Amino acid sequence: NQESVVAAVLIPINTALTVGMMTTRVVSPTGAPAEDIPRLISMQVNQVVPMGTTLMPDMVKGYAP
């Protein structure tokens, strides 16, 4: 099972992602793949992402898996 990126903390809208904001988990439906964490760092979210929420590609500005 592939791990997806999950918010480790509450991420406010327009916040640039840091490694400490993200964790990985096997979830369904799958979100952004765990191996993309290095690409996701410094990208901004376009909505509030509550802690424990799977990071879906459409939540991150300019990100395409």
Results as ranks from 00 to 15, higher is better:
residue 27 V to Q: 03
residue 29 P to T: 02
residue 53 T to S: 14
residue 27 V to L: 02
residue 15 T to P: 03
residue 62 G to C: 10
residue 46 N to D: 05
residue 50 P to D: 08
residue 21 M to R: 03
residue 53 T to G: 08
residue 1 N to G: 14
residue 52 G to V: 04
residue 13 I to R: 13
residue 15 T to K: 04
residue 64 A to F: 14
residue 17 L to Q: 06
residue 32 A to D: 04
residue 35 E to F: 13
residue 23 T to E: 10
residue 4 S to H: 04
residue 45 V to L: 07
residue 64 A to Y: 14
residue 17 L to K: 06
residue 14 N to E: 05
residue 56 M to H: 07
residue 23 T to N: 08
residue 64 A to R: 14
residue 17 L to R: 06
residue 43 M to L: 14
residue 12 P to G: 09
residue 44 Q to V: 14
residue 32 A to S: 07
residue 29 P to Q: 04
residue 64 A to T: 15
residue 16 A to R: 15
residue 54 T to I: 06
residue 23 T to I: 12
residue 11 I to A: 01
residue 14 N to M: 08
residue 28 S to G: 02
residue 51 M to V: 10
residue 63 Y to V: 03
residue 15 T to M: 09
residue 8 A to Q: 05
residue 1 N to D: 15
residue 9 V to Q: 11
residue 63 Y to H: 03
residue 29 P to R: 05
residue 27 V to N: 03
residue 37 I to E: 02
residue 33 P to G: 02
residue 43 M to K: 14
residue 51 M to A: 14
residue 10 L to I: 06
residue 29 P to Y: 01
residue 13 I to Q: 12
residue 27 V to I: 05
residue 23 T to G: 08
residue 56 M to E: 03
residue 12 P to A: 09
residue 44 Q to S: 10
residue 45 V to E: 01
residue 31 G to R: 03
residue 32 A to G: 05
residue 38 P to Q: 10
residue 8 A to L: 09
residue 5 V to W: 06
residue 28 S to K: 11
residue 7 A to C: 07
residue 49 V to Q: 03
residue 45 V to A: 04
residue 51 M to E: 14
residue 14 N to C: 11
residue 43 M to E: 04
residue 2 Q to F: 15
residue 45 V to K: 00
residue 10 L to T: 15
residue 6 V to E: 00
residue 61 K to V: 15
residue 56 M to I: 06
residue 54 T to M: 00
residue 2 Q to L: 12
residue 54 T to V: 07
residue 26 V to P: 04
residue 23 T to D: 10
residue 4 S to E: 04
residue 45 V to P: 00
residue 29 P to I: 06
residue 17 L to M: 05
residue 22 M to S: 08
residue 53 T to M: 12
residue 18 T to R: 10
residue 17 L to D: 06
residue 60 V to Y: 00
residue 30 T to R: 14
residue 25 R to A: 13
residue 51 M to K: 15
residue 51 M to D: 06
residue 43 M to G: 03
residue 29 P to V: 04
residue 17 L to N: 07
residue 4 S to I: 07
residue 28 S to Q: 13
residue 5 V to D: 01
residue 33 P to T: 04
residue 40 L to Y: 03
residue 15 T to C: 09
residue 53 T to C: 12
residue 43 M to W: 00
residue 25 R to L: 09
residue 50 P to M: 09
residue 29 P to M: 07
residue 10 L to P: 04
residue 43 M to A: 05
residue 57 P to V: 08
residue 48 V to R: 13
residue 27 V to W: 07
residue 55 L to H: 03
residue 44 Q to C: 12
residue 5 V to G: 01
residue 25 R to Y: 07
residue 28 S to N: 13
residue 2 Q to E: 11
residue 64 A to V: 15
residue 42 S to E: 05
residue 16 A to M: 13
residue 33 P to D: 04
residue 47 Q to V: 11
residue 36 D to H: 06
residue 48 V to I: 14
residue 7 A to D: 00
residue 13 I to D: 10
residue 57 P to G: 03
residue 54 T to E: 06
residue 60 V to E: 06
residue 48 V to Q: 13
residue 40 L to R: 02
residue 47 Q to K: 02
residue 32 A to H: 04
residue 48 V to W: 13
residue 31 G to N: 03
residue 22 M to Y: 00
residue 6 V to Y: 00
residue 6 V to L: 07
residue 7 A to Q: 03
residue 37 I to A: 00
residue 13 I to N: 13
residue 3 E to R: 11
residue 33 P to S: 05
residue 20 G to C: 12
residue 46 N to L: 10
residue 24 T to A: 15
residue 5 V to F: 04
residue 1 N to K: 11
residue 32 A to M: 15
residue 31 G to T: 00
residue 21 M to L: 02
residue 56 M to W: 03
residue 12 P to C: 09
residue 18 T to I: 08
residue 35 E to Q: 13
residue 59 M to H: 05
residue 59 M to P: 05
residue 27 V to S: 03
residue 42 S to F: 08
residue 11 I to M: 00
residue 3 E to L: 13
residue 31 G to A: 02
residue 38 P to L: 09
residue 58 D to Y: 15
residue 4 S to P: 02
residue 58 D to E: 14
residue 2 Q to P: 12
residue 16 A to H: 14
residue 49 V to S: 02
residue 37 I to S: 03
residue 51 M to P: 12
residue 24 T to R: 13
residue 59 M to W: 03
residue 18 T to Q: 12
residue 60 V to R: 02
residue 61 K to W: 11
residue 25 R to G: 11
residue 49 V to F: 06
residue 30 T to M: 15
residue 21 M to G: 08
residue 53 T to P: 03
residue 9 V to D: 01
residue 59 M to A: 05
residue 22 M to Q: 08
residue 28 S to M: 13
residue 60 V to S: 05
residue 15 T to Q: 05
residue 1 N to I: 12
residue 54 T to R: 00
residue 55 L to F: 03
residue 36 D to G: 01
residue 6 V to R: 01
residue 43 M to C: 15
residue 37 I to P: 01
residue 37 I to D: 01
residue 3 E to Y: 13
residue 15 T to I: 07
residue 28 S to C: 14
residue 6 V to C: 08
residue 9 V to K: 07
residue 59 M to L: 07
residue 26 V to R: 10
residue 38 P to S: 10
residue 11 I to D: 00
residue 23 T to L: 10
residue 13 I to A: 15
residue 32 A to V: 15
residue 36 D to T: 02
residue 26 V to K: 12
residue 57 P to S: 06
residue 52 G to R: 00
residue 61 K to P: 13
residue 32 A to E: 05
residue 60 V to K: 03
residue 13 I to F: 10
residue 55 L to I: 14
residue 20 G to K: 14
residue 49 V to K: 02
residue 41 I to R: 00
residue 44 Q to D: 04
residue 26 V to Q: 12
residue 33 P to L: 09
residue 9 V to Y: 00
residue 43 M to S: 04
residue 4 S to D: 02
residue 16 A to L: 13
residue 58 D to A: 12
residue 17 L to Y: 06
residue 41 I to D: 01
residue 61 K to C: 13
residue 22 M to F: 00
residue 20 G to P: 08
residue 63 Y to R: 01
residue 61 K to M: 13
residue 25 R to T: 08
residue 47 Q to W: 08
residue 62 G to L: 03
residue 43 M to R: 11
residue 39 R to G: 06
residue 45 V to R: 00
residue 10 L to S: 11
residue 62 G to A: 06
residue 7 A to R: 01
residue 12 P to Y: 09
residue 58 D to K: 12
residue 19 V to W: 15
residue 11 I to P: 01
residue 6 V to I: 14
residue 49 V to L: 05
residue 3 E to N: 07
residue 18 T to D: 07
residue 52 G to F: 07
residue 30 T to G: 11
residue 35 E to M: 13
residue 45 V to Y: 00
residue 47 Q to R: 12
residue 38 P to C: 12
residue 34 A to R: 05
residue 57 P to E: 05
residue 8 A to V: 08
residue 44 Q to I: 15
residue 17 L to I: 07
residue 48 V to Y: 10
residue 8 A to S: 10
residue 18 T to S: 10
residue 39 R to Q: 10
residue 1 N to Q: 14
residue 24 T to W: 09
residue 44 Q to T: 14
residue 55 L to M: 04
residue 22 M to L: 15
residue 21 M to A: 07
residue 36 D to K: 01
residue 60 V to H: 02
residue 48 V to C: 15
residue 58 D to W: 15
residue 12 P to E: 11
residue 14 N to Y: 13
residue 53 T to L: 02
residue 38 P to R: 08
residue 12 P to N: 09
residue 34 A to H: 04
residue 57 P to L: 08
residue 2 Q to V: 14
residue 52 G to W: 08
residue 6 V to F: 00
residue 49 V to N: 01
residue 53 T to I: 07
residue 45 V to C: 05
residue 20 G to Y: 12
residue 40 L to W: 01
residue 14 N to F: 11
residue 40 L to S: 02
residue 62 G to P: 01
residue 8 A to E: 01
residue 55 L to S: 01
residue 22 M to D: 09
residue 41 I to V: 14
residue 63 Y to K: 01
residue 61 K to F: 13
residue 10 L to C: 12
residue 19 V to H: 14
